[in-house]
Nucleic acid binder design. Structure first.
Length: 677
DNA sequence: GTTAGGG
DNA sequence: CCCTAAC
């Protein structure tokens, strides 16, 4: 059985070890440590990693997490290892606890006061009368009252999801309850885990354990919709928690003892709703989180972003100003997104249905993760890490400019508007994305690269509806599409292409997302480069309410923005690149190259010193040199940013003087020559 | 496509 | 970092 094989393989090492029985009692704690400086790791990362390991198919995660053991942070395995290395030297060959190391001060209080939340056993049942060797049991406990059940269950869900997707019919059963409370259903699937640990157990059932691993025929169809999450059957206590020899559980790191005490079985057979009502489960890698900082800075960042943009708007580009202004309402709307992530996918679930309660919003204020949609309200798409969730209640239709005589009736105005709208929509719409008013052009950039998930810039994220029509009638009274008379922009730059999502309007207009021609975003046209956009991760989800939710779950380095190729030039150019300050070493390289090549050969400089730095264009280098010269000329007090060593600045001035002189000489020479001729 | 320069 | 003119 394929499953068996996979699982066996998956347990041949790495973070989730085989855990020989003899060694099971030797529990160790290892801290999952993100590679980011803030020592934070989204629970999705953790769980995703675990899930990955559980089902690893001969591979090793490209970026194994660093692991530490104990308080001393003694490194067990530091840094990444190559796949080759991993083959011969598994990351971990002992049982261990894997703790999410989350320094979030935001949650410290909550967690410490939180009630214990026991995760019941989960259950993995083979449909084929074959024993599953993978328990993937998960126990979670002690999160905040608000977060516990959902978060914990999410962990199971992820693994279960994974199992179900990849195996030949396993189902994962799990339950969750808060102390003194009845079992709850999963409401959230995109929270960031905090203070959660995963530990192997030494008291696990072996495969085939009648309690949890017995093979049995099940009517369960291998369909996402059929995945059930019944509560445990009296296996809540750690002591009796059913694990097989390779079991893994998730427990709250600080509350293991508490969890131990909680052995009351939950009898309620509450089925956790399938993660996707539409039957489409999404497993997304996600990224390491920087959420705490981001969250705490949410407001300030947003403010800064606004300020920045304001200054940015203060340009001569009038049209861009129009866009940005139009985009403004969107910026102000509440945005739920999790955290930044690295090297993984972020699922964007922008539907018009998810309603976030005030409580949830409150939670979101603390928690970087998206607020929880009401159960059953929102198609839950699971990401294995952070989600970026967007609620798009409506799209604003493109700006219309209508001119009618004063004597025109209201009815005729309405008709004119209708005509204008249908005329725009009739030709089909495309969705674009705006970040701080700038078009996101490169579909291949990750959210992280784009800055959406970083520094809370998603504050300024907007979706656009873009008419395919690019030609608009000129100023003409009977034509509703006319541009403003003073519009300096060519028609192709009509503001019609810049509509922003706005959360004030009804759900109804969300349906505009659906291609009027009968298609929908499943068949979304093409990516930026004209190649067909891979659609497996794009879906229009039918939610329980019957409304459509646009869900974009781009794979790593896959498209997020969907911008048709024929979008106007303005749109293409509307994307501002992420700011990437030059490092000292880059400056060093630049200086060295310019010393050698001079100041007029930026292409050569690029090829010589920055050939591998894809994000540095020769224009960038030229600009950087310009600023370096400027920096070198001003007083150190006036300088900003990362200080450039004075030695380098001196070399900048020297080189600049030298090459300027050369250039002058050359020009004089050629002038003289041309005069002679 | 490159370079230069203003913003 | 963007934009554009000029080549």
């Amino acid at each position: 059985m394929a499953l068996q094989k996979k699982l066996d393989y998956g347990f041949s090492g790495y973070e989730v070890p085989p855990i020989p029985r003899a060694a099971r009692s030797a529990r160790r704690r290892c801290i999952f440590q993100s590679k980011t400086d803030d020592h934070q790791l989204g629970a999705f990362d953790l769980l995703a990693t675990v899930a990955d390991k559980l089902l690893m198919e001969g591979g090793i995660s490209p970026k194994p997490v660093d692991m530490y053991s104990g308080k001393e942070q003694q490194t067990v395995v530091a840094g990444s290892i190559t796949e080759e290395q991993a083959k011969y030297k598994p990351l971990i060959a002992k049982s261990c606890d894997l703790d999410v190391c989350d320094q979030s001060s935001l949650f410290t209080e909550q967690v410490s006061e939180a009630p214990v939340s026991n995760f019941c056993s989960n259950e993995l049942t083979s449909l084929q009368n074959e024993p599953c060797s993978l328990p993937a049991s998960v126990i979670t406990s002690e999160c905040s009252r608000k977060l516990a059940d959902d978060e914990c269950k999410l962990g199971l869900g992820i693994i279960a999801q994974k199992l179900d997707v990849r195996s030949s019919g396993c189902r994962m059963s799990a339950g969750c309850r808060l102390d003194g409370e009845s079992e709850k259903q999963i409401k959230m699937e995109s929270k960031v885990y905090r203070n959660v640990s995963i530990s192997s157990r030494d008291d696990m059932c072996s495969p085939g354990c009648p309690e949890t691993w017995e093979s049995k025929q099940s009517a369960l169809v291998r369909s996402p919709n059929s995945i059930k999450f019944p509560s445990c059957r009296g296996h809540m206590s750690f002591g009796s928690f059913p694990f097989n020899s390779e079991g893994v559980k998730i427990v709250t790191r600080d509350n293991e003892e508490k969890s131990r005490r909680c052995t009351q079985p939950t009898n309620a057979n509450t089925a956790i709703r399938p993660l996707s009502d539409g039957g489409d489960w999404r497993i997304k890698k996600s990224l390491a989180s920087k959420h705490c900082k981001a969250t705490s800075n949410l407001k300030g960042e947003g403010y800064n972003a606004n300020k920045k943009r304001c200054s940015f708007l203060n340009t001569k580009n009038r049209y861009r100003r129009q866009i940005s202004q139009r985009d403004y309402p969107f910026k102000k709307r509440k945005l739920f997104y999790c955290c930044s992530a690295r090297n993984s996918d972020v699922l964007i679930n922008s539907d018009g249905i998810c309603s976030f309660s005030e409580n949830d919003s409150k939670g979101a204020a603390l928690l970087p993760g998206p607020a929880s949609p009401g159960a059953g309200e929102c198609s839950p798409f699971q990401s294995r890490n952070s989600h970026v969730k967007l609620k798009i209640k409506s799209f604003r239709v493109p700006d219309l400019f209508i001119e009618l005589p004063e004597t025109a009736t209201v009815g005729s105005l309405k008709r004119t508007v209708m005509k204008a709208v249908t005329s725009i929509l009739g030709d089909g719409l495309h969705v674009g994305m705006l970040l701080q008013g700038k078009k996101i052009k490169d579909d291949n950039r990750t959210l992280l690269q784009t800055g959406i998930s970083r520094d809370n810039k998603s504050d300024a994220l907007g979706f656009t509806l873009e008419p395919t029509t690019q030609t608009f009638p000129t100023h003409c009274p009977e034509d509703p599409f006319q541009l403003p008379r003073d519009s300096p922009q060519p028609r192709a730059r009509s503001p019609l292409i810049a509509n922003v999502v706005q959360d004030a309007v009804e759900q109804k207009s969300l349906d505009a997302l659906t291609d009027p021609a009968g298609g929908n975003f499943r068949n979304f046209p093409e990516s930026d480069d004209g190649s067909a956009l891979s659609t497996p991760d794009m879906l229009l989800e039918k939610t329980p309410t019957g409304s459509r939710a646009l869900v974009a779950a781009p794979k790593m380095r896959e498209a997020l923005a969907i911008v048709p190729m024929h979008i106007s030039k303005q749109s293409e150019s509307a994307q501002r690149r992420m700011r990437r300050p030059f490092t000292v070493s880059e400056v060093e390289a630049l200086v060295q190259a310019v010393e050698k090549l001079g100041t007029g050969r930026w292409r050569d400089v690029k090829l010589r010193a920055f050939d591998n730095a894809k994000h540095r264009t020769y224009v960038d280098l030229k600009d950087k040199w310009k600023t370096l010269v400027h920096t070198a000329r001003i007083s150190p007090e006036q300088r900003r940013g990362e200080p450039v060593p004075q030695e380098l600045l001196d070399r900048v001035l020297t080189a600049h003087a030298y090459w300027s002189e050369q250039q002058t000489k050359y020009q004089l020479k050629s002038q003289r020559e041309s005069c002679l001729v």
